[in-house]
Every structure is written in C-alpha cells, then in structure tokens.
Design a binder for these strands. Structure first.
Length: 486
RNA sequence: GGGGAACUACGCUAACCUGGCAGACUGCUAGCUUUGGGAGCUAGUAAUAGGAGUUCAAAUCUCCUGUUCCCCA
C-alpha cells in the first residue's frame, strides 16, 4: 500500500471516479496537462492535447456541413445593445449572463456592446439586408467561434465555463417544410461525430416548451449521460419558425411577387462535449482518449541500459518510421525510468503504448499495450499493420462500453413514488409518460429536482393509448426523459 | 441577497493559538550513477495575496481591499 507521502510526491489521481466524481474530474483534467485554469475565473486554457481534440471535432463536423451545403462565415465578437434587444424572448433568456463592453480606451461608449452570448441578433441584422428574393434562399451559414456567458454557478472545465468554443449554424428557408427537413440532417451529423469520433452515445429528441431555446418555436437535442448518473445536454438544433424573421424583418419576394417572412433554424455543438468524453471514458489512472482524437496516438518507450542503448533506440525509431500513418512519439529520454513513463502516458491518455527492450529486439517483435483495458499484445515486427485493427477495435470498444452504460441507465417508470425513489440515487434517465402541461413539468422538477431533458424520438412509439401522465394522471401525450441535469 | 472559512515557492504543506533565523515534500536547473511499473546522491532555484495599523520586532495580532471556496435564500 502507498503511504500518504507517496501520494504527495507524484502527480496522480487521488480521487476515485465512483466515490468522488467531481474531484476526480478536475484532477484528471489538470494533472494530465489537458487543460489549466487561467487568471480569469471561470475561463480555462485548452492545452495542446485538448485543443487538438477541439480542432478535430471542428474539422470532421465542418466537412459534413460542407457536404450538405452549409458555408462558413465570421461575424463580429460585439453586438450593439439595440440589436440584442430586438427579440423579446431571446433577450429575456440571455440578459442575466451577458458581459458588456462600456468603454473604449478612456472613452465611455455611446452604446454599450455585448460580448456575444450567441450571434442570432447580429447575424440576422445582416440577413435582413442580404435576403431580398426567393433566389437568395436558402441561406445556410455557419461560424466557428467563441461565446461568453457570465455564469455565476461554480465553473467546471468544459461543462460550465464562462467562455466556450462552438459552431453556430444559422439558416434561412423560404419554405417551412424545407426548414424542418434540415433537423434530421444536422442532428445526424452531430450524432455521427459523437458516435464515431468521441465514442459517445446519446439520445435524440425534442425539448419540452419549458426547456426550449430562448426565441425558438421548437428545440431538439442530443442528451448525454455523465458517469455520475446526471444528464447533460449535448449538441442542439432549434427551429425558430418566423420569430426572428419578424423581429429582424427578414423578408423575401416569392415567385408570385408576394413578400414573405423566412423560416429559420439554428444549431450548435460546443466544446462541452470534450468534457463529457473525458468523463465518460477515463479512469482512476487518468485520461482515456478515443484513438481517432488523440494528439499522440502511440507512445514508444525504449527500455535500455548502457550496454544496449543505441541498438534499442535505433530499433524504436525504425518502428516509428514504419507507423507513419499514426501520430507517434518515441520517448527515449534517459532521465526518467520506464515505470515513470508508463504512469505518465497512462495519465495523459495515450491510446497505445509500445514497449521495446532486449526481449523485443531479440525476437523481432514489439509489445503493445492498450490504455483502455490494459490488454498486452505481442506483434511481429513484420505485422505492424495489425496496429490499425487494434486502434479501430479500441475506438469501437469505447463506444460500446459507453452505450451499455447508457442503456442500463434508461428506466421506464409509470409510478410517481417509484420515480421519486429512483431519482434520489442518480439513476440516469427516467422515461415516463407526460400530459404535456408545463404545470406538471414544474411540479415534477420542484418535488424531485429532475428536469425533462427531452422527448426521445424513438421512445414515442412506446406510448400506449391508455398511458397517463406520471404526475397528474390525465391522458399522456408524450414519453419524456427526466433526469437530474447539469 | 445573507452568513461562514481560507489565501505561505507551479503544486502540496510546516511554523500561526503563545509575535523573534520562513522548514519539508514535489517541481524546475546542473552534474554523476541508474533504467522491464512513479530510481539515488550532490549542488542550485523559488514563497508569507495587496495595503494600512499596533510593536524594538508581524506569516503570526487588528483593520481595509482583492481573490477563492462552502452554507443558506
């Protein structure tokens, strides 16, 4: 057993993921050099290994956007107060957390400027100038940027930050149906990125009116599950109808010469998903990063002494040269022991470790160790191609494991007492029939602290004719997922 | 909005009650010896959140400011 002194000596994770999730989460992010706190409270630093992941998410998502015809633009960081105030619901939703610029140099500004909490208002001011005719539609624009929302609750890296990175897609259509069709396309793109790159399963569905975006007609989301059993909202899609079009006067003349308002959507995926990914996959030894998103995918650790040093390092470099398609690091630094390196790279979440010592050189092999399950695999030097399938398997295994966890934490409940009991233990998603009234939703939240996360698309077919609302007993209209929520 | 606690080197911490040389561990730099699961020795480096007061003397006592955390609404 290690003594307390040993713990102090080395950078490692001392909190247990199961017992003390929030301490564990912070330790795992900071000690692995993944992110750091900054001089500004509630705003963190993305270090190379975490920024690489954001950059990748951006790259893959953006490629899908381009494929379906969404173009990138960039709008200003500041929004004049009068624009932000134009849509009533919107300003009501955001005003408590807007950061304001009131001075330029030593001069007080005539009109204060909001640091964008989201860009609808400044973008739609331009849209109203750009959209004149049916020929200008659809207009499908997106920007990758940062936004500031001045949260007052305890900030948590990625999950609750005063500044975060995201995409904001803002599209305008002539036809309502055409606008609605975009929903499944965009949610499909987000789902693909979450599933195939971050190895995260989610639940797609419609938000309740209470939880929908400020200014939207309807909101949709992919809800994810944290390891502590709390739900967290992932990427979302909002159907804005003509709300913003009317406030910002975005009109076009159709083929018959009639002037009409456009139909709009907005959608986003944010850097929050990185936090969910880390929390989901990582363990008490440190980070576990899905191989496709790892900054360094493979670390080679030569194990040598004075007599065989050159031979083993040459062999290691040779292996690296043969693994050109991967991001590989050879750590031949002589001042740290192999054991130290093993622990260090496990903490940093490098997906595969290759050990090369006398044994391997003599037999013309390498020893591969998987970060996620600790499996050791001996490979002939001439069959390095198998690394490909090991990496692919690890990527899939991480998803499957997370999917199993999610599936085992969705419980159908038809009785409110049972509901209350289950939510006490942070059981995950409780799926229940609901009458559709905000009153019941409020009362459920008051009594259990569980929010309606969304109404899963694929659960609606389970609604039976005689199902009744879990709270009031009136006929049920939807199946809703309730959960304690971040 | 109300109440409470804390702040010493990158980090973790000692000395604080009872005022008197700021001491470890980790890190970092250099050298030598090591290297199959967090190596050892030697030398070096770096700190009392900011300001004011009391005092011969303040990390220590008092006040102000700042920051962080916790609890309640």
């Amino acid at each position: 057993m290690e003594s307390l002194n040993d713990i102090d000596k080395v950078k490692k994770i001392t909190a247990d993921k199961e017992e003390n999730f929030s301490d564990w989460y912070t330790q795992v992010l900071i000690n692995s050099d993944f992110v750091d706190y900054s001089a500004v409270s509630g705003m963190m630093v993305f270090r190379p290994s975490s920024y690489f992941i954001w950059d990748s998410i951006k790259k893959y998502t953006d490629a899908f956007f381009k494929e379906v015809g969404i173009e990138d633009v960039y709008f200003p960081l500041f929004i004049p107060e009068r624009l932000l105030n134009k849509e009533k619901e919107h300003i009501k939703g955001f005003s408590p957390e807007v950061a304001w610029v009131t001075e330029g140099g030593n001069t007080k500004l005539e009109e204060k400027l909001a640091v964008r909490p989201t860009s609808e208002t400044i973008m739609y001011d331009s849209y109203s100038k750009w959209i004149k005719s049916w020929r200008d539609l659809p207009l499908r624009l997106n920007q990758w940027n940062n936004v500031v929302r001045w949260e007052f609750k305890h900030p948590t890296p990625f999950l609750r930050n005063r500044e975060f990175l995201w995409n904001e897609g803002h599209t305008a259509f002539a036809d309502e149906k055409e606008a609605l069709n975009e929903r499944d396309v965009v949610l499909g793109i987000y789902d693909n990125v979450l599933r195939n790159y971050l190895a995260l399963p989610g639940i797609r569905g419609k938000k309740t009116d209470k939880e929908k975006f400020a200014g939207a007609v309807a909101s949709y989301s992919i809800e994810l599950l944290m390891p502590d059993g709390w739900a967290i909202q992932g990427p979302d899609f909002h159907n804005d109808g003509q709300n913003f079009a009317k406030s910002f006067d975005i009109k076009y003349v159709d083929k018959s010469g009639e002037s009409k308002y456009v139909y709009q959507n907005t959608f986003a995926i944010s850097s929050r998903v990185i936090g969910i990914m880390i929390a989901t996959h990582s363990d008490n030894k440190g980070l576990i990063i899905p191989p496709k998103l790892a900054y360094i995918q493979i670390v080679i650790i030569p194990i040598y002494n004075n007599s065989n040093k050159d031979k083993i390092i040459d062999y290691s470099n040779n292996v690296k040269d043969r693994l050109k398609e991967f991001r590989v690091l050879v750590d031949s630094d002589g001042s740290y022991s192999p054991g130290w390196k093993f622990n260090e790279y496990e903490l940093k979440g490098i997906p595969l470790r290759i050990e090369i010592g006398n044994k391997e050189v003599e037999k013309n092999t390498i020893t591969v160790k998987r970060r996620d399950n600790g499996e050791k695999i001996e490979l002939e030097i001439n069959s390095l191609g198998k690394i490909n399938s090991i990496i692919d398997e690890m990527q899939v295994d991480l998803y499957e494991k997370a999917k199993k966890f999610l599936d085992s934490h969705v419980t159908k409940v038809y009785d409110f007492d049972e509901f209350k009991k289950k939510i006490q233990n942070h059981i995950g998603f409780l799926q229940a029939p609901w009458c559709g009234s905000m009153e019941c939703e409020d009362k459920i939240a008051d009594e259990t602290k569980a929010k309606a996360t969304n109404m899963p698309f694929d659960a609606q077919q389970d609604l039976k004719e005689n199902d009744v609302c879990i709270y009031c007993g009136k006929p049920a209209k939807h199946i809703v997922n309730f959960a304690r929520s971040y």
